[in-house]
């Protein structure tokens, strides 16, 4: 009896979490007359890919995806690279000092990005990097660095000290130790950190909006929100929903494959403060 109740509750939780997403997919698959019909049609009577096609043919949606990939990919690579350098250095310090430095970094990490838009914009405008991929990549890397350093430092610390010393005696250069010993042995952490950073960047909105103002440089979230413009009638809801579906499915696939790691990464990441 108690079990059944729990199963029902669990079902409700799933429904609650997934409904908006399912509704988006359903809307995306409807032809436009079904999208705007009253009473609301739940399951599409005819499946149509018209909306998805329109998203690519009528709008530079492919371009948005490319932008997002460049920015999120670039930022992920840069973040991992810089973060592993920093984490490697932190590891060579004693734990107390390293923890103190890390705390300092982490205070920066919980600042909501909306409050960072102005400072980032001012700095990047000075560097003439507004509207450049690299500007946004830099901003994202800065934003995600504390998290990545934290994850990698924890992973590096887990490796026995003797391993590092053995490498030292074997004649590895410091660079060699980082790339041939530390990084390969921390591969699970590296990949999960990479995935999380990628998702953060893929999803980020306000910095993308502020730092890449020209339309051809929109990332996917900005592009989609701009599709909407204002409200109700003129808005191509079918296409918007198709765009939303197309953006979110890859994220969901990644999450599905890496579920356990993502949860671990997130919790350790959040418990860092």
């Amino acid at each position: 009896m108690k079990k059944i109740l729990l199963y029902i509750l669990m079902g409700l939780v799933i429904l609650y979490c997934l409904f908006p997403f399912f509704w988006t997919i359903l809307t995306a698959l409807k032809p436009s007359d079904e999208v705007f019909s009253l009473p609301v049609i739940y399951l599409p009577k005819t499946l149509s890919l018209e909306n998805s096609e329109n998203v690519f043919s009528k709008r530079p949606f492919g371009r948005y995806i490319l932008n997002s990939l460049i920015v999120a990919g670039g930022a992920t690579a840069l973040t991992l690279w810089v973060a592993s350098l920093i984490a490697f250095h932190l590891r060579s310090l004693d734990l107390k000092k390293a923890t103190r430095i890390q705390r300092g970094l982490l205070i920066g990490a919980i600042i909501p990005p909306a409050l960072l838009a102005i400072p980032f914009f001012v700095v990047l405008a000075k560097l003439m990097l507004v509207n450049h991929y690299f500007g946004l990549i830099l901003a994202y890397a800065a934003l995600n660095l504390p998290f990545a350093v934290w994850m990698l430092h924890a992973a590096f610390r887990q490796l026995p000290k003797e391993l590092d010393e053995a490498a030292l005696m074997d004649g590895f250069s410091p660079m060699g130790r980082l790339f041939k010993i530390f990084m390969p042995l921390s591969r699970p952490t590296l990949s999960i950190t990479g995935v999380l950073v990628f998702i953060f960047c893929w999803n980020e909105f306000i910095l993308a909006l502020t730092l890449m103002p020209s339309q051809l440089k929109y990332t996917v979230p900005v592009g989609i929100s701009m599709l909407s413009g204002a409200s109700v009638y003129e808005i191509p809801w079918g296409e918007i929903n198709a765009a939303v579906t197309l953006t979110t499915i890859p994220v969901i696939l990644i999450i599905a494959v890496l579920q356990r790691w993502v949860i671990e990464g997130l919790t350790t990441g959040a418990m860092k403060g």
Partner: peptide, 24 residues
């Protein structure tokens, strides 16, 4: 399966899902 579905709202871009909510 359950944990996965709970993760999904978190993993989706806020701005994009705001558009979906606007529609809903």
């Amino acid at each position: 399966m359950n944990r996965l579905s709970v993760l999904i709202p978190w993993a989706l871009p806020t701005a994009v899902m705001a558009v979906a909510w606007q529609w809903m």
